[in-house]
Amino acid sequence: MSFKVTVLPSQHEFTVEDGQSVLDAALAAGIVLPYSCRNGACSTCKGRVVEGSYEGGPNTAQIVSEEEREQGYTLFCQAKPLSDLTIEAHEVRMASDIQIRKMPSRIVEMEKLADDVMVLKVQLPASDPFRFYPGQYLDFILRDGKRRSYSMATPPNEANLVELHIRHTPGGAFTDHVFGVGATQMKLREIQRVEAPLGSFFLRKSDKPAVFLASGTGFAPIKAMIEHMIAVGDKRPVHLYWGGRRPVDLYMDGLAREWENQLPGFRYFPVVSEALPEDNWQGRSGFVHRAVMEDIPDLSGHQVYACGAPVMVDSARQDFTTHCNLPEEEFYADAFTTAAHSV
Rank of each mutant, 00 (worst) to 15 (best):
M1K: 14
V7E: 07
S10C: 11
Q11V: 05
F14P: 00
F14N: 00
A29W: 07
G30K: 03
P34Q: 05
Y35R: 06
C37P: 08
R38P: 10
G40S: 12
G40D: 14
C42A: 04
T44R: 00
V49Q: 10
V49M: 02
E51M: 04
G52A: 15
G52H: 13
E55W: 00
A61F: 15
A61Q: 14
R69I: 05
S83K: 10
L85F: 04
E91I: 07
E91W: 05
V92H: 09
R93G: 00
A95V: 07
A95K: 13
S96A: 14
D97E: 12
I98A: 00
M103N: 01
M103G: 01
P104A: 09
S105V: 04
V108W: 13
M110D: 09
E111W: 02
D115I: 12
D116Q: 13
K121E: 15
L124E: 00
F130V: 10
I141Y: 00
I141G: 02
D144M: 06
G145M: 15
G145R: 13
S149L: 00
A153N: 03
P156S: 06
N157E: 11
V162D: 14
I166L: 08
R167H: 07
H168E: 04
D176F: 04
V178D: 08
A183Q: 11
E190F: 08
E190W: 12
L198C: 05
G199M: 12
F202A: 07
R204E: 02
G216H: 05
F219Q: 13
F219I: 15
I222V: 15
I226R: 03
H228N: 11
H228W: 15
I230P: 04
A231Q: 13
A231T: 12
V232G: 01
D234P: 15
K235R: 12
K235F: 01
R236Q: 03
R236M: 03
R236D: 09
P237C: 10
V238Y: 02
L240F: 14
G243F: 06
G254S: 09
W259A: 05
E260C: 06
N261F: 04
G265A: 13
G265P: 14
R267F: 05
S273C: 06
E274D: 12
A275K: 10
L276C: 07
D279M: 13
G286E: 10
V288W: 01
V288L: 06
R290S: 11
M293C: 04
E294P: 02
V304S: 03
Y305K: 03
A309K: 14
A309L: 06
P310V: 07
V311Q: 14
M312N: 10
V313H: 12
R317E: 02
D319Y: 12
T321C: 08
H323V: 00
E328Q: 09
E329T: 04
E330C: 05
H341I: 12
V343I: 11
